[in-house]
Simulated assay, not measured.
Amino acid sequence: MSNEQGFLRISIAATVVVAALGIFFGILSGSFSIAFDGVYSLADAAMTGLALWVSSLIVQSARNDAKSGRIRNRFTMGFWHLEPIVLLLNGCLLVTVAVYALINAIISIINGGHELHFGAAIVYSGATLVVCAIMAGIGAAVNRRLKSDFIALDIKAWIMSGGIAFALLVAFIIGLAVQPTSLVWIARYVDPVVLGLVCLVMIPIPITTIWKALSEILLIAPVDLQEHVDRVASDTVRRLGFLSYRAYVARVGRATEIELYFIVPEGLPPKRLEEWDALRDEIGAAIGDESVNRWLTIAFTADVEWAE
């Protein structure tokens, strides 16, 4: 688990196991909520697999071997744009599954609920809760170093699954406890009610991820990055006697994209290309965050139309 791909592979394997158990125990116990948890986990595993593929493409394209060279020749703008697309699809899929389950829960409540085998349901909920807690804890530890959006979303999915498992466990224990009492009628409603409550809690959780991914797809300029680049560009204009500048910034997945155009006075004394390159290096160093994930373009022109 030393890198993003390693953790995602293990997460996919664990998710598939939980999904298979969820579907099996959902059928065995007659629980819609457990079956939903299994289907939710399968959807999450599929999207994590897609995230792993995109992450591998991004890492591969940054290498200097022959295969990476062929990839870059076909995809000269890189693969960063795929990252927010995957995050958007993932978030929308989780919300869609939760909304569908909520509708089924409401229909089940209206129809008087259904019988449930609480023993099998409790075994599944307890085991799933343990797995989710372990995976979320490991993911949080790994991501403190990697700071990956994919791992962050995967951790959120494990926390959501753990919350589902905990809610199911509590509800099933209550349902089992009321069976010998006069409140036995409640047991028929335990499964759909807890499913509905879990869905209501789950639906808003991916909204932040969806909005962040959508803002990156639409290339909305992040306020902090825009202000930082404006400070660097303004200082350069003032220090070197340029007329003005135009700055275009965006964050797309793990990439930072910056285009800077400086408007210089007409008739400016000529400089050697090496001097302009040195100035670009100076401005790039002031902007910071130099890595394979920074796409920085700096141009100088006396014609403002080239910068618009």
Results as ranks from 00 to 15, higher is better:
residue 234 S to W: 07
residue 254 R to Q: 14
residue 224 D to Y: 03
residue 244 S to V: 00
residue 246 R to C: 07
residue 222 P to H: 05
residue 255 A to H: 00
residue 242 F to K: 04
residue 249 V to R: 05
residue 229 V to Y: 03
residue 227 E to W: 00
residue 226 Q to G: 10
residue 255 A to E: 07
residue 249 V to N: 00
residue 235 D to Q: 10
residue 254 R to V: 12
residue 253 G to E: 05
residue 225 L to I: 05
residue 259 E to W: 09
residue 253 G to M: 07
residue 237 V to S: 06
residue 240 L to I: 06
residue 237 V to I: 11
residue 249 V to G: 03
residue 239 R to A: 14
residue 222 P to E: 11
residue 235 D to A: 12
residue 250 A to G: 07
residue 237 V to F: 09
residue 249 V to Q: 04
residue 253 G to V: 08
residue 235 D to V: 01
residue 246 R to V: 14
residue 253 G to R: 03
residue 224 D to T: 11
residue 235 D to C: 03
residue 255 A to F: 03
residue 230 D to M: 02
residue 252 V to I: 14
residue 244 S to P: 08
residue 240 L to H: 15
residue 257 E to N: 13
residue 241 G to F: 06
residue 236 T to P: 00
residue 251 R to A: 05
residue 234 S to R: 15
residue 228 H to T: 01
residue 251 R to Y: 01
residue 237 V to Y: 03
residue 254 R to T: 15
residue 251 R to P: 01
residue 259 E to V: 10
residue 250 A to H: 09
residue 258 I to K: 11
residue 236 T to Q: 10
residue 234 S to P: 02
residue 242 F to R: 05
residue 244 S to F: 10
residue 233 A to K: 00
residue 232 V to N: 04
residue 238 R to N: 13
residue 249 V to I: 01
residue 234 S to M: 10
residue 223 V to M: 12
residue 228 H to P: 00
residue 242 F to H: 09
residue 246 R to Q: 11
residue 224 D to S: 14
residue 260 L to G: 06
residue 262 F to L: 14
residue 249 V to P: 01
residue 250 A to E: 03
residue 229 V to A: 08
residue 226 Q to H: 14
residue 254 R to I: 13
residue 227 E to R: 11
residue 244 S to K: 13
residue 251 R to I: 05
residue 238 R to P: 00
residue 234 S to C: 09
residue 241 G to P: 04
residue 227 E to C: 05
residue 243 L to S: 11
residue 225 L to C: 05
residue 224 D to L: 04
residue 254 R to Y: 12
residue 241 G to E: 02
residue 240 L to N: 15
residue 245 Y to R: 09
residue 252 V to P: 06
residue 223 V to N: 12
residue 236 T to C: 11
residue 237 V to L: 08
residue 234 S to Y: 05
residue 231 R to V: 07
residue 243 L to V: 15
residue 246 R to L: 01
residue 225 L to M: 09
residue 249 V to Y: 00
residue 230 D to G: 00
residue 249 V to E: 01
residue 251 R to D: 11
residue 247 A to R: 06
residue 256 T to F: 03
residue 231 R to C: 02
residue 255 A to M: 10
residue 241 G to N: 02
residue 257 E to Y: 08
residue 241 G to L: 07
residue 246 R to M: 10
residue 252 V to T: 14
residue 260 L to W: 05
residue 228 H to V: 01
residue 224 D to C: 02
residue 250 A to R: 04
residue 262 F to D: 07
residue 242 F to S: 07
residue 233 A to Y: 01
residue 242 F to V: 07
residue 246 R to D: 09
residue 258 I to H: 13
residue 256 T to V: 10
residue 246 R to A: 11
residue 232 V to D: 03
residue 248 Y to K: 04
residue 239 R to M: 09
residue 230 D to R: 08
residue 259 E to S: 14
residue 225 L to Y: 04
residue 242 F to D: 02
residue 237 V to E: 06
residue 256 T to Y: 07
residue 249 V to T: 12
residue 251 R to K: 15
residue 262 F to P: 06
residue 243 L to N: 14
residue 238 R to A: 14
residue 224 D to P: 04
residue 234 S to E: 15
residue 247 A to W: 03
